[in-house]
Measured scan of single mutants.
Amino acid sequence: YHPGVFRGDKWSCCHQKEKTGQGCDKTR
């Protein structure tokens, strides 16, 4: 789950560079 959006080459919430990554918050 990603609370942010994928912008450019990373997520705005956790700056992960993998769009298919696990995400940053799994509580939702």
Rank of each mutant, 00 (worst) to 15 (best):
Y1S: 08
Y1I: 10
Y1M: 09
Y1A: 01
Y1Q: 04
Y1G: 09
Y1T: 08
Y1R: 12
Y1F: 11
Y1C: 04
Y1D: 00
Y1L: 01
Y1K: 05
Y1N: 02
Y1W: 01
H2C: 00
H2P: 00
H2A: 00
H2S: 01
H2Q: 00
H2M: 00
H2I: 00
H2R: 00
H2Y: 01
P3G: 03
P3K: 05
P3E: 08
P3D: 15
P3L: 12
P3V: 05
P3R: 08
G4V: 00
G4M: 04
G4Y: 05
G4K: 05
G4R: 02
G4L: 00
G4S: 04
G4H: 01
G4E: 07
G4C: 05
V5T: 15
V5K: 15
V5P: 03
V5D: 13
V5I: 06
V5E: 14
V5S: 13
V5N: 13
V5L: 07
V5Q: 09
F6M: 15
F6I: 06
F6V: 06
F6A: 07
F6H: 09
F6L: 08
F6K: 05
F6T: 11
R7Y: 03
R7H: 04
R7P: 00
R7M: 07
R7I: 12
R7E: 09
R7L: 03
R7D: 05
R7T: 12
R7C: 05
R7K: 10
G8E: 15
G8N: 15
G8H: 15
G8Q: 15
G8M: 14
G8Y: 06
G8S: 14
G8I: 06
G8L: 09
G8P: 11
G8K: 13
G8D: 14
D9A: 10
D9V: 03
D9T: 09
D9C: 02
D9W: 06
D9H: 10
D9P: 05
D9K: 10
D9Y: 04
D9L: 07
D9E: 15
K10C: 08
K10F: 08
K10H: 11
K10S: 01
K10A: 09
K10P: 00
K10G: 12
K10Y: 03
K10E: 08
K10V: 12
W11H: 04
W11D: 07
W11V: 01
W11G: 06
W11N: 12
W11L: 02
W11P: 13
W11Y: 05
W11A: 11
S12G: 04
S12R: 00
S12E: 02
S12T: 04
S12K: 10
S12V: 02
C13M: 12
C13A: 02
C13W: 00
C13P: 08
C13I: 00
C13H: 04
C13K: 00
C13R: 02
C13S: 03
C13E: 03
C14A: 02
C14I: 01
C14D: 14
C14K: 08
C14T: 06
C14Q: 07
C14N: 03
C14V: 02
H15Q: 11
H15Y: 08
H15M: 15
H15T: 14
H15K: 02
H15W: 03
Q16E: 13
Q16P: 01
Q16R: 08
Q16W: 12
Q16K: 13
Q16D: 12
Q16V: 09
K17T: 13
K17D: 14
K17S: 11
K17M: 15
K17G: 11
K17Q: 14
K17A: 10
K17W: 10
K17I: 02
K17N: 08
K17F: 06
E18F: 05
E18V: 08
E18Y: 06
E18P: 05
E18W: 07
E18Q: 01
E18L: 05
E18G: 10
E18S: 10
E18D: 11
K19A: 06
K19M: 14
K19P: 04
K19Y: 01
K19W: 13
K19I: 05
T20C: 15
T20N: 15
T20L: 12
T20V: 13
T20F: 10
T20E: 10
T20Q: 11
T20K: 10
T20Y: 10
T20I: 10
T20M: 15
G21A: 14
G21T: 10
G21P: 02
G21V: 11
G21Y: 07
G21M: 15
Q22K: 02
Q22W: 02
Q22A: 06
Q22D: 03
Q22G: 08
Q22F: 02
Q22V: 10
Q22Y: 04
Q22E: 09
Q22L: 04
C24V: 02
C24Q: 04
C24L: 01
C24N: 10
C24P: 03
C24E: 08
C24S: 02
C24D: 06
C24A: 02
C24I: 02
D25E: 12
D25R: 08
D25W: 04
D25T: 09
D25P: 09
K26D: 14
K26E: 05
K26A: 06
K26I: 10
K26P: 14
K26N: 08
K26H: 04
K26R: 08
K26F: 12
K26T: 14
K26S: 12
K26G: 15
K26M: 15
T27G: 12
T27Q: 12
T27C: 14
T27S: 10
T27V: 09
T27L: 11
T27A: 14
T27F: 05
T27D: 07
R28G: 12
R28W: 03
R28F: 11
R28L: 13
R28D: 08
R28I: 11
R28H: 14
R28P: 14
R28A: 14
R28C: 14
